[in-house]
Design a protein around this nucleic acid. Structure first.
Lengths: 219, 219
DNA sequence: GGCCGGATCAACCGATCGGTTGACTCCGGA
DNA sequence: TCCGGAGTCAACCGATCGGTTGATCCGGCC
């Protein structure tokens, strides 16, 4: 049993945790060391297991947590630990912002929840061996991105974008930001260029999808 | 064992199906009759089980299916069957549009996936007994609607709002919905009145906040 | 010192949006 | 049967937005 790959499950859905536990324990060579509902709990579990001399070979992490520390933050915190275990992301969404954020945070793999069990099993094994495991769809998405680098918005432009998303007019934004309407329009033009759109609502849609601004999916 | 409540699981995620199966079979008095990955498969399973004289007391249905018939459509199809089993929705999202659509389609309950196991168990039992089971959050949401005289948007208006949120222009919306630009504007005026705003971006902001539309999260 | 990018502002004009009025059809309830 | 709401469309006009050109200021960098 000590030869088993020991996994820490992190997901806020009890249903999903139960599913992963049932699925993983059925595989030979993989066992579930512990579970956590969010980022803080995951770090606490890692510390506890470490104190007991118990190994964790792979952290299987959801990105969306209803409450508590989110998956990206948790991932980077875990990667800062001494002898940090590899973090394998297992989530529902495949937006580029999610994936890039996770990769930047130090994730060593990115799988989607609708993946067949066998794919998940192989990803866990690969992660435990220090390799990278990407879902085919995710890999394709990353390929498309590196070829066309997304231009970054300036802090000022993001500020404006946030106000834009609340439904303010140019004049109202100008007042809130203590600048003239003309400046607002100048910023907007730059934002449109960088996001590849040609009107304000499309800018909000793209910005929300790329997670440049928080897109209401808070919960 | 024949006294058990027999459940048909419908979810496109193998992980979630495994989780529900593991969770439900641990409860006394509940067993899983069959599973399906999408709407068509669910109907097929129901027919198959019926042909074999096997009972299905509750259908546990996800709303979001990656491919194949979606949950709302599947729900209404199932409810059209002879001796139709109650359909309990178990999903991730709690937007107005989702809930209302599910209820209209004949769902007898609406639970969220992050609910604790005990809540899900009670919902299944309630559904099997012909009762309605709503997640507390969902119930509160519906209560908030009936108490506050919030003017309800028509289905058509919601459709338009969804396209609006993707950043389309009036003309583009008109093309997508096979109506004239004039009609789009008429609908917009009504939407603005009902939401208490005076421009499209504000409408999107309010609609997202009231969860009339989803701010984000396609799959 | 010179250069560049970010931020600021102005003036202008065409395109789109916001808002109104009026009108027609269809359908379901009183 | 009549009425009202939902949905459709048209014409019109003022307000706002989209896009351009050109300009100033400032801070960092070579």
């Amino acid at each position: 049993m000590t030869g088993d790959i020991r996994v820490l499950l992190v997901d806020d859905h009890p249903v999903v945790r139960a599913g992963l536990r049932a699925m993983l324990t059925e595989f030979d060579g993989i066992s579930v060391a512990a579970e956590a509902a969010h980022g803080e709990a995951a770090l606490k579990e890692l510390a506890r297991l470490h104190a007991h001399g118990e190994r964790v070979d792979v952290v299987l992490m959801d990105l969306q947590m209803g409450a508590g520390m989110d998956g990206v933050t948790a991932t980077s915190r875990i990667r800062l630990l001494d002898k940090a275990p590899p973090v394998l992301i297992l989530t529902t969404y495949d937006t580029d912002a999610d994936i890039l954020a996770a990769v930047e945070a130090g994730a060593s793999g990115y799988m989607l929840k609708d993946a067949p069990p066998e794919q998940i099993r192989q990803a866990v094994i690969a992660a435990a061996a220090g390799q990278t495991a990407l879902a085919p769809r995710v890999a394709a998405l990353l390929m498309g991105r590196i070829s066309s680098p997304a231009p970054a918005l300036t802090p000022r432009e993001v500020q404006l974008l946030e106000r834009l998303a609340t439904g303010l007019s140019n004049r109202a934004i100008a007042k809130e930001m203590f600048i003239s309407e003309a400046t607002v329009k100048t910023h907007l033009v730059h934002i449109y260029e960088k996001l590849g759109v040609d009107n304000r609502t499309a800018a909000i849609a793209v910005a929300a999808e790329r997670r440049i601004i928080r897109g209401r999916g808070s919960r």
